[in-house]
Amino acid sequence: MGTRFSKSASPYILNQPKTVTASPTSDSEAATTASNILLLAERLEQCMRRLQGCFLSADGKAMDYLGMKNSPQFVEFVNCAVELQQASLTPLSGVSNESLRKAFFINIYNLMTMHALIELSARDTGIPRSMLDVKDFWRSFEYKIGGLTFSLDDIEHGILRGNRPHPRDLWSRCYFNAKDERVPLALSQCDPRIHFCLNCGAQACPRVSVYSGTDTGSLESALNGAAKAFCAENIVLDGTRNEIHLSKIFQWYEQDFGSDRTGMLARVSGWLNDDKEVQLRALMSKEAKVIFVPYDWRVNSTSQAGA
């Protein structure tokens, strides 16, 4: 497949200050929350919920990017995102704040994806038809947060996967090097459920949701809900043919779910309903063939894709 978008000499900072229409957020509120990452995270969650309420499809899988880009809801979000540059990440640091950090960076990842696609829609080329049409999409756009920069890959692999290397990088032991200032923000362990929460803009991606880390129990419930919803839709069991059909996500990140194929399937079985779990384990005992379904990289836009 040809590439219609080239990577710029350096990543584009999406949340750099620019002249925008006044946001409904008051100046005093912005000043109060600009340096407080926890309050800013709550405002971003609110912005995300408003964007979803107006522009997310009923099944939670597609966005109206063209309708969103000139909306007051998007302007409000952009202004809030700009404030991330001045916020301190210290309140999110440390093992005791991992739930907050996990929810924050899941939301930032999904917001950045939307923001980047809208940025592309404003260019002459418009929204791509496929995420693979954009060269190095996941490294070409960044947010600056508290003086540090984060691309989508930085967030997924460096932070949320606990500083594990990109699946394509077979020779590295970690994503960030030991001297990287972002290393302290990496989660201490890789929670494989993040793969059911991150939406990279493709139609095969999980549903877009908002996550809050202020209540660990609520976050756990939301993560389990995302896992069960994704597995219900993306695991197909064929007892007649002795086959297990899985999303490519389980192939790319197999080591996040278990030490081997059997471990991965055993972990996944816990997110299936009782009948389907029994069926999966029966197929596993028969050494069923595992088939990874080709990923649908078409952009999850309800608007007409760029030509």
Rank of each mutant, 00 (worst) to 15 (best):
158 G>H: 04
256 D>T: 00
58 A>H: 08
33 T>A: 13
14 L>C: 04
109 Y>M: 01
105 F>R: 03
77 F>N: 14
111 L>V: 08
164 R>W: 08
227 A>V: 02
228 K>T: 08
194 I>Y: 01
249 I>L: 05
227 A>C: 06
307 A>E: 14
52 Q>C: 13
286 K>V: 12
41 A>F: 10
19 T>I: 15
110 N>R: 05
66 L>G: 03
292 F>M: 05
218 S>A: 15
238 D>Q: 02
177 N>R: 09
12 Y>I: 10
79 N>E: 11
303 S>M: 04
274 D>W: 12
175 Y>T: 09
120 L>A: 00
265 L>N: 03
131 M>C: 13
285 S>G: 08
130 S>L: 10
210 V>Y: 01
249 I>T: 05
110 N>A: 07
299 V>R: 02
27 D>C: 10
72 P>M: 01
250 F>P: 00
241 R>G: 09
282 A>E: 09
304 Q>M: 11
199 N>K: 06
219 L>D: 01
45 E>T: 12
279 Q>F: 01
88 S>L: 02
25 T>S: 14
107 N>T: 12
2 G>W: 14
156 E>W: 03
6 S>V: 14
23 S>E: 02
303 S>V: 00
182 R>Y: 02
274 D>M: 08
189 Q>V: 15
221 S>L: 13
178 A>F: 09
233 E>D: 10
51 L>E: 07
96 S>A: 15
301 S>W: 06
305 A>G: 12
72 P>G: 05
132 L>S: 12
76 E>P: 06
223 L>K: 05
126 G>L: 00
90 T>V: 14
68 M>H: 02
72 P>N: 00
133 D>V: 15
122 A>T: 15
46 Q>H: 14
168 R>D: 14
167 P>E: 04
279 Q>G: 08
119 E>P: 10
203 Q>I: 15
209 S>T: 13
278 V>Y: 05
78 V>R: 10
179 K>T: 14
163 N>C: 06
143 Y>P: 04
92 L>N: 02
135 K>V: 15
27 D>S: 10
277 E>A: 07
61 K>L: 11
289 K>E: 12
212 S>W: 07
7 K>A: 15
165 P>F: 02
125 T>V: 13
219 L>E: 04
257 F>E: 07
152 L>C: 03
102 K>H: 12
40 L>E: 00
297 W>E: 05
170 L>W: 09
242 N>A: 06
117 L>C: 07
223 L>E: 04
248 K>A: 13
272 L>K: 07
188 S>W: 10
44 L>M: 07
140 S>H: 08
50 R>Y: 13
210 V>L: 04
127 I>T: 04
42 E>Y: 03
40 L>H: 03
8 S>K: 11
244 I>M: 06
201 G>M: 04
122 A>L: 14
144 K>Y: 08
71 S>Y: 04
246 L>S: 00
131 M>W: 11
79 N>W: 13
32 T>V: 15
154 D>V: 06
289 K>N: 10
150 F>S: 03
